[in-house]
């Protein structure tokens, strides 16, 4: 195994190139089909028969993309931590919820939404370091006990958060310059008098998607272009060798855990602004991270992106087209992935 191969495995499957070309081909065809569906001014009748209305379809796609962005933010931290430390952090959903509450309090207190986002990232990130140093370091190399401990932590955390913030639903208020709607250059319908109606979409949700993409690129740059990133990638491949080359593995672990936890906290504020905050969200986002990471492949950032896209779109399209069976679609994606590729779409076989 090549020690410095990127964690996203793009160079790993040289012999299976033809198979990958097939998959890329399918992806391109799907993307073209989607582009056609979105940009055709008026749908032919037979498409309407299948997909109901263009407005419903396009907005569920957009909602799916937004949700995918949010899922990616949560799951990227989860997958990063797993990839390096083999630590399945089942308290990851609690970190998300805590971030949301912390962000709410800070934004409420100072009146600056951005401070809430930054505060949640820093505070939850620091908590991540504390968890790593105080708890996980003591159980290193014992996967099962680490996982059990994270379950215990999530129970206590959920209960304490319930004690502090009670059972109500919070909505983190977005500043004026981020709220409002944006008219997209996508035609929703053409009125009989010839005027064109464009699809409108909340500005904030589009920004969520852009933020997720920006953070994804930043993570990729950090992993592939910085020294710390190099250490992390080396650690994912072979922890012992990294440690033997004189690098303080624990410092690397702490950094990764801080970034992973911080991202969960940040996602909490963004999710709490785009949607809402309430007890039980921790489980929802834990499930999302689990499925995204199982589908995308453990320890792979690009896998998390692909998984998040699949699950986010499936959830929102499912909501519109098979209302009460939506979760089954998500579940089927997971089962099919496990049946065909147990290690996940971008997972390595080791």
């Amino acid at each position: 195994m090549n020690d410095l191969r990127p964690p996203d495995d793009t160079l790993n499957n040289a012999p299976a190139l033809t198979k990958r070309q097939v998959w890329i081909g399918i992806a391109v065809i799907l993307a073209l089909l989607l582009a056609w569906l979105v940009f055709t001014p008026v749908w032919p009748e037979w498409v309407k028969d299948i997909l109901i209305s263009k407005k419903a379809f396009v907005s569920s796609i957009l909602n799916g993309l937004t949700l995918a962005g949010l899922y990616f933010l949560v799951a990227s931290g989860f997958t990063l931590v797993f990839g390096l430390m083999r630590n399945v952090n089942l308290a990851h959903g609690s970190l998300y919820l805590l971030g949301a509450y912390v962000g709410y309090e800070i934004a409420d207190l100072t009146g600056y939404w951005l401070l809430g986002v930054a505060g949640a990232f820093v505070i939850v990130g620091l908590l991540g370091i504390v968890l790593q140093v105080v708890v996980f370091r003591r159980l290193e190399g014992d996967d099962l006990r680490q996982t059990l401990v994270t379950i215990g932590i999530s129970i206590v955390a959920a209960d304490l958060m319930l004690a502090i913030w009670a059972g109500g639903t919070y909505q983190i208020l977005v500043p004026d310059w981020l709220s409002g709607t944006l008219e997209l250059p996508i035609i929703s319908a053409v009125r009989s008098n010839g005027s064109i109606v464009y699809i409108k979409y909340p500005l904030f949700r589009i920004l969520v998607l852009l933020a997720a993409i920006a953070i994804g690129i930043a993570l990729w740059l950090m992993l592939n272009r910085t020294r710390v990133g190099m250490m992390i990638r080396a650690g994912v491949d072979d922890r012992e060798m990294l440690s033997a080359s004189g690098i303080n593995v624990h410092a690397v672990f702490a950094i990764v855990f801080a970034v992973g936890a911080g991202l969960a906290g940040l996602a909490g504020v963004i999710g709490g602004s785009a949607l809402s905050v309430s007890p039980g969200e921790d489980v929802r986002y834990l499930l999302a991270s689990l499925v995204v990471v199982i589908v995308g492949g453990m320890g792979s950032i690009s896998g998390a992106a692909i998984g998040a896209l699949l699950i986010g779109l499936a959830e929102q399209l499912g909501l519109v087209y098979f209302p009460t069976y939506g979760i089954v679609v998500t579940f089927l994606i997971m089962v099919v992935t496990l049946a065909i590729r147990p290690q996940g779409i971008m997972g390595s076989t080791s």
Binding site: L287, T330, M334
Partner: peptide, 11 residues
């Protein structure tokens, strides 16, 4: 296993 079964249970 623990992750997949948790995902199954939640789903």
């Amino acid at each position: 296993t623990i992750m997949i079964t948790l995902a199954v249970a939640t789903a």
